Amino acid sequence: MSIVIGTSYVWNVVAATVMGLQSVSFAGCAARQRQRLGLSHTATVGSRATESLSDAENDEFSRFQKVHEAHVEFTPLAQSSVLLAGLFYPRLSAWAGAAYIVGRLVYTVAYIRCGPESRKYGAVITCPAIITLLGATFYGSVKALGLCKNHH
């Protein structure tokens, strides 16, 4: 099996790029939020730097940091999966990448505005998207290696 990269793969590259921009832009939002609260750029949740914050400010800072950590943890997996799955199933993976992007946005807004219980709304979108991307990557790789024979 040979892999032919067609023009529809461009959407996978676009999705991976938007995922990266989404993560970087949220890092910028988190940095501006630290600055607004008068915290140093190295301040972390529960550190001495946050002792002067009110409970509401500390809770807000904590939510921003948790969302930022989630972006940092999942972006490499999402980006690599959308690019790899796109080699085998460019349209499916581009759509799954788009779903992941929307899910991450919903996750971020819900978590920051309403708290950790609300992140489930974004997770309901991102989890199936990641599973689709990982499944397409794995299945496409197995087929490309000739480990899965079609019985027709």
Score class of each variant (00 low, 15 high):
residue 2 S to C: 09
residue 3 I to R: 08
residue 4 V to T: 13
residue 5 I to P: 01
residue 8 S to I: 14
residue 9 Y to R: 04
residue 10 V to N: 07
residue 15 A to I: 09
residue 15 A to G: 05
residue 18 V to T: 08
residue 18 V to L: 04
residue 19 M to S: 00
residue 20 G to M: 10
residue 22 Q to N: 10
residue 23 S to M: 14
residue 25 S to N: 13
residue 25 S to K: 03
residue 26 F to T: 05
residue 27 A to I: 11
residue 27 A to V: 13
residue 29 C to I: 14
residue 30 A to Y: 00
residue 34 R to S: 00
residue 34 R to K: 09
residue 35 Q to I: 09
residue 38 G to V: 04
residue 38 G to R: 00
residue 39 L to Q: 00
residue 41 H to E: 15
residue 41 H to S: 15
residue 41 H to N: 15
residue 42 T to M: 09
residue 42 T to A: 10
residue 46 G to F: 01
residue 47 S to P: 01
residue 48 R to K: 14
residue 48 R to C: 11
residue 50 T to R: 00
residue 54 S to L: 02
residue 54 S to M: 04
residue 56 A to F: 02
residue 57 E to Q: 00
residue 59 D to A: 04
residue 60 E to M: 03
residue 60 E to N: 03
residue 60 E to S: 11
residue 62 S to W: 08
residue 62 S to D: 07
residue 64 F to N: 06
residue 64 F to L: 09
residue 64 F to M: 04
residue 65 Q to P: 06
residue 65 Q to R: 07
residue 66 K to G: 12
residue 67 V to E: 05
residue 67 V to F: 04
residue 70 A to K: 12
residue 70 A to M: 15
residue 72 V to E: 14
residue 73 E to G: 13
residue 73 E to F: 12
residue 74 F to I: 12
residue 75 T to F: 09
residue 75 T to V: 07
residue 75 T to W: 03
residue 78 A to R: 06
residue 78 A to N: 06
residue 82 V to M: 03
residue 82 V to I: 02
residue 84 L to W: 11
residue 84 L to G: 06
residue 85 A to G: 09
residue 86 G to T: 05
residue 89 Y to K: 05
residue 92 L to D: 00
residue 93 S to C: 11
residue 94 A to I: 00
residue 95 W to T: 14
residue 97 G to D: 01
residue 97 G to R: 02
residue 99 A to M: 10
residue 99 A to Y: 11
residue 101 I to M: 14
residue 101 I to C: 13
residue 105 L to G: 13
residue 107 Y to Q: 02
residue 107 Y to R: 02
residue 108 T to E: 04
residue 108 T to I: 08
residue 110 A to W: 10
residue 112 I to F: 09
residue 112 I to M: 09
residue 112 I to Y: 01
residue 113 R to I: 07
residue 113 R to W: 09
residue 113 R to L: 15
residue 113 R to T: 06
residue 114 C to F: 15
residue 117 E to S: 14
residue 118 S to Q: 09
residue 119 R to A: 07
residue 120 K to G: 07
residue 120 K to D: 10
residue 122 G to R: 00
residue 123 A to N: 13
residue 124 V to P: 10
residue 124 V to M: 15
residue 126 T to C: 07
residue 128 P to N: 02
residue 131 I to P: 07
residue 133 L to H: 05
residue 135 G to K: 11
residue 135 G to N: 03
residue 138 F to L: 13
residue 139 Y to E: 12
residue 140 G to A: 05
residue 143 K to P: 11
residue 144 A to I: 08
residue 147 L to V: 07
residue 149 K to C: 12
residue 149 K to M: 14
residue 151 H to V: 12
